[in-house]
Nucleic acid binder design. Structure first.
Lengths: 207, 207
DNA sequence: ACCTGAACACCGTTCAAGT
DNA sequence: ACCTGAACACCGTTCAAGT
């Protein structure tokens, strides 16, 4: 497991091969199947490991709003450090994801959100976090792994502005903002948007 | 392209093989490389096709809030009909995603959101939509493709409740809600949460 | 300009056989 | 109980050669 995580960190998603992992562990590829059912399970376990670390430090005695901002940001940073986590989070069937939901849900509950609204609120936060994580991981695949933040954003901005300005006016208008922005701040702004909405929507329809 | 989309719809992501596609088109696998650079480009083109249809019907004369709800819901439904779109949306480098962002951004602009806040607002909506799409696609992989909505939700709920209730109290508490809920409504509730937040956050910090 | 199809360099996974 | 490693059934991609 530890070796698998190392390999993922070093060379990304595609580099984790049963053959390569077996070679690194000095065994045959067949030996791995004694410990893990298949490749998906291996990826899922590695992802859950990372996310377990992210939610573990979430304490129920903080201000719930701050606690939510904090787990969200830790998730963001974890995906930044391990892009393969972002990729796999969007594909895996409720192991790491469920840990995140439980953590967020607990804080939402302690915020005083009425029970009927807790489900929608917690999943909205979760979906936003997962979406941002995936997008970040996708962006990471566009640049060499050793590029710095600024170079990274410039590459993404270049993708945006490569489109026809007439067809993509909005995207062109905000491309400058993208180049200079702090994506952790942007991410937190999104979390705040949802938190602000939770304070306001409450009753919508009675259907 | 059309044949590729057909195959993806019939048998999912893994079924689209260059060999299988070539066989269906009565050619050799090498022939495809004249028209497309590689498998990723094929998936990206198919995804962009679907998303282009989703954004095409978005008119700038509607109420912007309703227009955002409508594109979001069309994306949700498109992913529901083609789960592979949800999978690929979270991995692709700004072709389909950029179309969505442009569409959403245009509406956000017409909502009267101040320019400085448009970037964060539009990307928050985008990330939420992408996250929900990915999660939906992941869920679709858990159930047989012909299962109905109710069976589908019961399978997901079973995953949730299979965990230790002591470790996952929140998840257990909302599992009943999951089983009975309308996931399109839940999705729209998330969109509304963000829209409500946009009306409220405005000024946060001046750093 | 576009297609053919054999060949290359891989995969995940299985399974008899070993220790 | 756990490991070995050859073998099976695939992949995406390339490329000389064809039309």
């Amino acid at each position: 497991m530890a070796t698998a995580t190392e390999m993922l960190d070093e060379a990304g998603d595609g580099a984790l091969t049963f053959r390569a992992l077996a070679a690194r562990l000095q065994t045959g590829p067949g030996a791995l199947y004694w410990h893990v059912a298949n490749r998906d399970e291996l990826l899922a376990a590695a992802t859950e490991n990372v996310i377990a670390g992210v939610v573990a430090t979430s304490r129920p005695d903080e201000d719930p709003r701050e606690a939510i901002r904090a787990v969200a940001l830790r998730t963001f940073d974890a995906v930044d450090a391990h892009p393969w986590v972002g990729t796999h989070l969007g594909r895996e069937p409720w192991s790491a994801t469920l840990r995140l939901l439980e953590c967020i849900g607990g804080h939402v509950d302690r915020m005083g959100v009425p029970p009927a609204a807790q489900f929608d609120s917690a999943t909205a936060l979760l979906n936003f976090i997962l979406g941002a994580a995936g997008q970040n991981a996708a962006n990471a695949r566009l640049v060499p792994p050793d590029a710095d933040r600024s170079a990274f954003l410039h590459v993404v901005a270049a993708h945006w502005t490569s489109r026809d300005p007439a067809e993509y006016p909005f995207v062109h208008r905000i491309a400058d903002q993208l180049r200079e922005h702090d994506d952790r701040e942007q991410f937190l702004a999104g979390v705040d948007l949802i938190l602000a909405g939770m304070a306001n929507v409450r009753s919508r329809d009675g259907s």
